[in-house]
Design a binder for these strands. Sequence first.
DNA 1: CGTTCAATTGAACTTGCTCAAACCTCGTGG
DNA 2: CCACGAGGTTTGAGCAAGTTCAATTGAACG
Lengths: 237, 237
Amino acid sequence: MPPLLRHRPGAPHPAAPDCHSCALQGFCPADGGCPVERRYRLAKGDHLFHMDDAVRPCIYLVRSGCLKLYQLNQDGVQRIIDFPGPGRWLGADDIGAPRRHACALALNACEVDAVPYGRLMAMLERQPRSAELFGHMLSRDIARQQRLLAILRSSPAERRVAHFLLDRAGPAPAAGRAEAPAILPMSRQDIGDYLGLTPSTVSRVLSAFRQRGWVALRLRGFLLLARDSIAQLANLT
Amino acid sequence: MPPLLRHRPGAPHPAAPDCHSCALQGFCPADGGCPVERRYRLAKGDHLFHMDDAVRPCIYLVRSGCLKLYQLNQDGVQRIIDFPGPGRWLGADDIGAPRRHACALALNACEVDAVPYGRLMAMLERQPRSAELFGHMLSRDIARQQRLLAILRSSPAERRVAHFLLDRAGPAPAAGRAEAPAILPMSRQDIGDYLGLTPSTVSRVLSAFRQRGWVALRLRGFLLLARDSIAQLANLT
DNA sequence: CGTTCAATTGAACTTGCTCAAACCTCGTGG
DNA sequence: CCACGAGGTTTGAGCAAGTTCAATTGAACG
């Protein structure tokens, strides 16, 4: 079990924990009743939870770092579900289930805040239209899954990778500002599993992008040099 | 707007509406407070709602028939999301959104019951652990999406079609009983869009199954002759 | 009975996979 | 400090699967 930060459970959170990029944006009451209970620090390779763990009734907010959410087949083959990073949450789809249905592994050093279901629900119920709020909260994840489904259904490899890179790079920088280097903490194998491609194909496509001058590649990161070209190829709908 | 059945809103549902196969199985109070407000009858080709319609705060329970849930690209290309049939619901992922993000089209004659969010939520809140219940309700859909994701990521065409047929055929009949004929109300194009294949490939695979004696094909339906072989090919994990 | 649209089938082609070899990176230990 | 080894990455050649395009068949409906 990973070490946890000092923070008195039950008390309102001592300092605003990155509210500007929080997944609960707009749901917390303005009077500072932050529902975070604990902060976990994970080192690279640590598991936040395993498949078939008993579900601790919490959702987790990712503050920094990047995780790999995956399932293990009985064949031992992994099925990547997602790579949640800062501003995302995990565990909401295990609400009401007895055991976790996936593993969550830290790809690099991570900070993760735990919010107990009880506090989340109490907070929502203090708001009018709690059902709508909760639904809206979940709908972002459903929409993300559907975007991935759309890509997997029938896109060539280059479009899949283009989409993935844009997703990793985040929103475009303000006009006139340079692209920030983006990290790629997962292996080519992981990317391939996520996109339905083989590691070889991922590598080939990335090399092709590099040769066209679209990206600068490093082993665990990249820099977008031609976001427009990549976005055009990805053909975002 | 489709015609609606006579049923006094606000009153408890006059007759138990197919509770044995209802998607709300286990959530309704035992004392008969069925939250259904109205029943819609749709003819083949009718839309229950369109993309970008203002969201009427209801979820819809499919009682009979089969619908096509899809989005329209700006290119005019359709993206199939799902084919909800009896016992499924629609619209839960639009909770909290201002506009519907997909179209729902009846593929044949359908009966659909509407449940207002308000009643659903009131019903859940009368139960202990309403959050868990609601989460459990949604998790079935998420699990379905993830199963589809797994298939799309890297299965050959035959496995995709095998999986689709098993999904359409429903659970195996009791030992010794014959397979019931299953309907296939959608076009080959729709099946292809759903599975990430071309209509040609779908047709080829179905023909191959027929030639192996695994299925009997009709234009808008089929009959499983060798469920075992197909299940083995689908290799359900 | 003819029209129309969907489904089937065939042939050539393209894409991404498989298999395999070479290479790079990084941690480990001499 | 350097050599070594292990694992991940890149790249190539051949191959198999599915697509594209087009022609044919079939079914439904006026």
